[in-house]
């Protein structure tokens, strides 16, 4: 192919990608730009895309009046505890499914996979009633308990561990390592890449979760960021600017985490073909 034609093709591809990227970024730009407008500017006529009077009012309101700091802390505590606990529970189960041959293995695994198609709406009400009976509403534990294990996590770890040769484990056994030591000293270090992936997915999933915290956390000091944001929308119906500033604060940490660790994120999608 001659050089000119090649250049032209490359230009064309860049143009296409640029257009796609612009569409992908449009909501972020709109969100960011609206969040820097003083109250009411986004609904003046003629409508505008960029702020005329650049202002930080919305952010000040969020931290001084709305006490967003507390909600931020709640989200952080929950995301970290769910991530750590579920890593432990899922990796234990994944280890058992990958490296043991026990009688109930196949039926249990089939049970796990088939329960993936049960819609969340089916299980929500019964779990809520149960948590209510146990007095776990408005506690961190009400969010942590249902998040402690995930089918996807077990599946991901099992797939990964299956690629580790059995001879490694046998060698450790011969050296006298006991089974929990094998899990702790051999399996966990070997599984580090997949654990990082799963940690990232779990953290993002918990941080971004909306419906479940909305149902479980009804007392204001227990709100997570998403719930606080939704309530903001309820109280300040007209206040699109405040809402968008709240959205920016919610997504900035998660986008930073994502940008830093996106390699693992993509790896996770490719191993499991899933997102939860």
């Amino acid at each position: 192919m001659d050089l000119f034609k090649k250049r032209l093709v490359s230009l064309f591809i860049h143009f296409g990608l640029l257009a796609a990227a612009a569409v992908a970024l449009l909501p972020f730009i709109w969100m960011l730009s609206t969040s820097f407008m003083p109250t009411g500017e986004s609904s003046t006529f003629p409508p505008r895309f960029l702020p005329v009077h650049f202002s930080l009012t919305q952010y000040l309101v969020l931290f001084q009046q709305v006490k967003l700091g507390r909600f931020f802390l709640n989200s952080l505590i929950l995301s970290i505890s769910v991530t750590l606990i579920s890593l432990f529970v899922n990796s234990l189960a994944g280890f058992a499914f990958a490296k043991f041959s026990f009688r109930a293995k196949k039926p249990l695994f089939v049970f796990l996979l088939s329960s993936m198609i049960i819609p969340g709406q089916v299980t929500m009400l019964p779990v809520f009633l149960l948590l209510n009976k146990m007095g776990l509403l408005n506690t961190y534990f009400g969010i942590i308990l249902p998040g402690m294990a995930s089918i996807f996590g077990i599946f991901l770890i099992k797939q990964y561990l299956q690629s580790i040769p059995d001879s490694l484990l046998d060698a450790a056994r011969i050296d006298g390592a006991r089974d929990f030591t094998i899990y702790w000293k051999i399996i966990l270090p070997l599984a580090k890449p997949v654990l990082v992936t799963l940690a990232l997915l779990t953290f993002m999933g918990t941080w971004n979760d909306f419906l479940w915290p909305l149902i479980v956390m009804t007392r204001e000091n227990m709100y997570t960021l998403p719930v606080a944001l939704a309530n903001l929308l309820g109280e300040h119906v007209q206040d699109a600017e405040l809402m968008m500033a709240g959205s920016v604060i919610t997504i900035v940490p998660i986008i930073l985490v994502f940008l830093l660790l996106q390699k693992y994120y993509i790896q996770g999608i490719l191993i499991g073909g899933l997102k939860e």
Partner: peptide, 14 residues
């Protein structure tokens, strides 16, 4: 990265 970004954002915010 730019094209995967929509996926990192919570659905309710989107």
């Amino acid at each position: 990265t730019l094209l995967i970004l929509p996926w990192a954002v919570p659905q309710y915010i989107t």
